[in-house]
Design a protein around this nucleic acid. Structure first.
Lengths: 203, 203
DNA sequence: ACAGTAATCCTGACACTGTAAAGATGCCGA
DNA sequence: TCGGCATCTTTACAGTGTCAGGATTACTGT
């Protein structure tokens, strides 16, 4: 039987997985490095070699978080009917991620614990941002439109992750999505002029 | 001379002030109760009597935070020209507070450390929410409009507090306010029908 | 095949943290 | 005045992050 070899084999990945579980249970503020090591069945100082310190581990976890975040958005955008619908779906994906992994969401967007000067992290974050810019560009939007879509998507997601939006929680899933869609649509750049006046059937 | 009497006099208020300073310097995640006690020039166990534990202190601080938050919004709304402008100014106040006290902002909106079941805290939070609902009601809006204004205001504020909106940081203050105003205006319920079509002069 | 080196992981230690228990101090009412 | 009580301190303990040094294993060149 494998009696726990001295060398783990892939401790780095195991620690990242343990860290994600720890994060999901305790949140960013209750995150403990020693507890992560215990989860991975390894000594409390083992993570140091792979990640340096706690900040290093959380930075690596944030990188992974950004990738999963983008994956969630991409998955939703797959089934888009046009560019406008695509942007709206991105916003819904934003919310989906925040609800599915609230702690990870907080880590990558509202925590000071990761090192945001680390090149891998800035790269991962920039990738997500560039993707957003692409969505708006496709609609002929400008900087203001980018801020509008991002801020609104982020606001809905962040408030939902913190259970602040009680109004939405009472509704059914269909009702919720409908409300959010209508909110997100307001943020998009105005449709082509010949259709801009048609009340609510831009889709 | 006052040679440090055994009884402080108003330690509760002094601790709250020290806690706010600690929060501003170290952030929610670096907040230390012992360090707060040291700031107030008192033993590390002194806060226990007034606030129970760290959560109690942070809860009390969050209550104060909500009050200041609302004060910031109110101040901005004072100089509003009409209900529409009032709602926009509220959003700008939201941002102002987040930039002036990012850590306090995080504490009341994105932290799991305060006890959100505490009646004083839920009361303070509800007051802010009710005020927002009032703003939307005055414009003839519904639940969706409340979410739209809140989420967008919150998104801009939260992203700005975390220095994520590099786009805005480059601009001048006037440019920034103009962009945000235009974003917030999209979230408001449509203006009265006879003015709805006028391109950009709803103000 | 084998020795040396580097990578990996562990043990032990230190300073710091939050919390609880028990003692010291001074205020205030009976 | 004096006892009770709120207030604050001291002491203690378990848990945390990080560092230094030692143990174990894998890998590399010969």
């Amino acid at each position: 039987m494998t009696e726990k070899p001295y060398h783990h084999g892939d401790l780095r990945a195991a620690l990242l997985a343990a860290a994600e579980a720890e994060l999901a249970e305790k949140g960013v503020e209750g995150f403990s490095l020693r507890s992560v090591a215990k989860r991975a069945g390894v000594s409390h100082a083992a993570p140091a070699h792979h990640f340096g310190d706690t900040q290093g581990l959380l930075t690596a976890l944030a990188v992974e978080g950004f990738i999963r975040f983008q994956d969630t958005l991409d998955a939703r955008e797959q089934s888009a009917t046009d560019d406008r619908d695509r942007a709206v779906r991105a916003g819904l994906g934003y919310l989906e991620f925040a609800l599915a992994r609230p702690a990870l969401f907080r880590l990558i967007f509202s925590s000071a614990r990761p090192d945001y000067t680390a090149p891998e992290l800035t790269a991962a974050a920039s990738r997500a941002y560039d993707h957003l810019v692409g969505l708006i560009r496709a609609l002929g939007g400008d900087e203001t439109d980018v801020i509008a879509l991002w801020a609104t998507s982020h606001g809905i997601a962040d408030l939902s992750a913190g259970n602040k939006l009680r109004t939405l929680q009472g509704k059914s899933l269909a009702e919720r999505e409908a409300m959010i869609r209508s909110v997100l649509l307001r943020c998009l750049p105005a449709a082509a002029p010949e259709f801009a006046r048609i009340p609510d059937r831009s889709l």
